[in-house]
């Protein structure tokens, strides 16, 4: 007899099952029994589930094929096998962790050697190249500050023997000279060839040369640190040269003017001296410039190399090392989980 209870819902089947297993509350049970008296389909379904349950419960039991007790030897072997599994997983985990640490150490070693923060390696090459430029700008600023300080100090020290009117004139000239020298700095920065630079220097020198016999200020320009600068050495050398010439002319001209009240020297002699000094100064200048350029080029090269080494694409070895790191970390975690599961499995 096939019975179809298609109108019953899943919830009805669940209540029937729970009713048979005594899982309903007293109230639910009473409500269900009232429904049973009213609904034929529900009654039929209850009979079917009751029958199914009884058939399953009456299913014959199998005899065990043998006893499953453990012998002493089996017990020892079982304990040993569990310990062996834990040791193996533990060993795998340890090796994987060690491999991870070694590979991670190799990855980070270059940064420790350089004494740099690892995140610097990620900085773009442009950022690395900006640093020397900033240092150059700072050096120029320092030079300007020094010039300003010495401009204020120099008239007090050097202009003492000179009369007040002359001092005022010379201060004005000195200020003009500083302005001219600043122009020189800008011109020198732009100038590319040595000849252009010499021409500019000569023109400035002629403009800034004080009238013979009038006395003047002493400008002692100390060259700023020029290792990282591309402009400063040229400026410093030129300024030093101009200052020295100015000092020399003043040393010769001022005492004579005071003592004799005549023109200190004939123009021909002065020109000879100037030409000699100029020649020697030009030699020094060219030598300094050459050495500075050499330093600059080597420095730029090292900076570029460092930047390239830090920003270059990872090599195959580095990629393999990174993959090894990931793999070893993963293996270590999996092995640890396996140890944990083996210990707690039941």
């Amino acid at each position: 007899m096939m019975m179809n209870n298609r109108r019953l819902k899943d919830k009805d089947w669940q209540i029937i099952s729970a009713y048979l297993d005594g899982q309903l509350t007293e109230k639910q049970e009473m409500a269900f029994e009232i429904r049973l008296t009213q609904e034929t389909e529900l009654r039929d379904a209850l009979r079917q589930i009751q029958w199914t349950k009884s058939v399953l419960r009456k299913a014959p039991r199998r005899k065990v094929p043998h006893h499953f007790i453990l012998t002493q030897q089996m017990a020892v072997e079982a304990k040993r096998r569990k310990n062996r599994v834990i040791r193996q997983y533990g060993l795998v985990s340890g090796i994987a962790s060690l491999t991870f640490l070694i590979l991670a150490g190799f990855q980070l070693l270059p940064y420790f050697k350089m004494g740099m923060a690892p995140n610097l390696a990620m900085a773009p090459k442009e950022a690395l190249m900006e640093e020397p430029m900033m240092m150059e700008a700072e050096a120029v600023e320092e030079l300007e500050v020094e010039e300003g300080i010495q401009m204020q100090e120099a008239p007090v020290v050097e202009a003492e023997p000179v009369e007040d009117v002359e001092t005022a004139d010379m201060m004005v000239e000195g200020a003009e000279k500083v302005v001219v020298e600043e122009e020189l700095v800008e011109s020198a920065a732009v100038a590319e060839s040595e000849e252009e630079l010499n021409e500019i220097t000569d023109s400035v020198k002629e403009e800034s040369q004080p009238p013979i016999g009038e006395g003047g200020l002493s400008f002692t320009l100390t060259p700023a640190p020029t290792e990282m600068s591309t402009i400063t050495p040229i400026v410093a050398a030129t300024s030093a040269k101009v200052g020295e010439e100015f000092d020399a002319s003043m040393e010769e001209s001022v005492p004579r003017a005071e003592e004799t009240g005549e023109l200190p020297k004939e123009e021909g002699l002065i020109e000879e001296d100037e030409s000699r000094e100029e020649a020697s100064t030009n030699e020094d200048e060219s030598r300094e410039e050459a050495s500075t350029n050499e330093d600059e080029s080597s420095l730029d090269q090292s900076i570029i190399e460092t930047g390239e080494s830090l920003t270059k694409q990872p090599s195959v070895f580095e990629m393999l090392a990174f993959a090894g790191m990931l793999l070893s970390a993963l293996t270590a975690i999996v092995a640890l989980v396996a140890v944990f599961r083996t210990k707690n499995r039941s």
Binding site: W13, S17, I49, T52, L56
Partner: peptide
């Protein structure tokens, strides 16, 4: 249990 019983029936 109730789903299993329904199918078994």
């Amino acid at each position: 249990v109730y789903r299993a019983r329904k199918r078994l029936q």
